[in-house]
Design a protein around this nucleic acid. Structure first.
Lengths: 151, 151
DNA sequence: GCTTATTTGTTACATCTGTAACCATTGAAA
DNA sequence: TTTCAATGGTTACAGATGTAACAAATAAGC
């Protein structure tokens, strides 16, 4: 009896990583080519566009990034004049971050591109496959407590 | 009419990344706590365990890693005495890599742990959800040409 | 009120990563 | 052959990352 083998191609952590990497890489072209944003910058940017105004910590927990990543992304976006910091009158540790006019303009331009990307990708799947994928991902998120509602 | 918004939590690239990261992080504990392996080292190791003997390039294409990552992982595993390099008699650019006895022993010990991890994770899902997830991932792999058969 | 613990955010350091340059070797072209 | 392109693999360098230490401010315990 030969030693037991682990077929890596079928191993869930490996498959997820490969897929995530491929999809992210592909989508990254959209914001990298256009504006030279890095991934953490894009996430920070997208989170702010979605929620309007947040603290750095909130961005981190919500977009699943380490606080140093957020800190650096925020600095970069500020440098780019896409976001501003507003001190909190009550708690001087906190800064409220928000997109500037220029940032918002870029956001409004990016949103349709992002949606188109997703639509096109999912469009390559049949209806059943698409439902299976989205449902399966949701189920896995649930058991891992990665639901949006939970964070 | 308010500007169109992209809900990041529902955006496919983001969801995939988050899931992959969470699952990999969790599984990484298994080989990190036990042997102090890094992720590239684990992948190289697992690929060699699965296929017996390969060149560095083959490991790279098969396990989706950059050649510098493979090069460094191979060096580390060699240092650990888990793999050996054998020069190719016909082509002196090539080295055939294979696990040593110690490497194989560790591999045989890791395989059941990896399978148990996956089984436990999938076990938290219902049968339908599990099928949906695996089917959905497979479908997505297909449209992205990430099928194991294709590489 | 005073001391201590926690929170918010930045930065220093070490590590990891990819790009590009590189060496050695082999293959193709002529 | 001789020359030039392509391949296998390593390494130097620059950029990105996380850990840990840190400063500043607030909250909690007493």
């Amino acid at each position: 009896m030969q030693p037991e083998i682990l077929p890596l191609e079928q191993f869930l952590p490996y498959r997820l990583n490969r897929l995530a990497e491929a999809v992210s890489r592909e989508f990254a072209k959209t914001y990298r080519d256009r504006h030279g944003l890095t991934r953490p910058e894009w996430r920070t940017f997208a989170t702010l566009g979605q929620y309007g105004s947040m603290t750095a910590t909130a961005i981190g927990t919500h977009s699943a990034m380490h606080k140093t990543k957020v800190s650096r992304a925020v600095a970069a976006l500020e440098e780019r004049k896409w976001l501003t910091r507003t001190p909190d009158p009550a708690d001087r540790r906190i800064e409220h971050l928000a997109l500037t006019k220029a940032g918002l303009t870029a956001y409004r331009e990016m949103v349709p591109l992002a949606k188109a990307f997703e639509r096109e990708l999912l469009g390559k799947l049949g209806a059943k496959e698409r439902d299976a994928l989205l449902g399966g991902l949701h189920a896995l998120q649930s058991v891992l407590s990665l639901d949006p509602s939970e964070t």
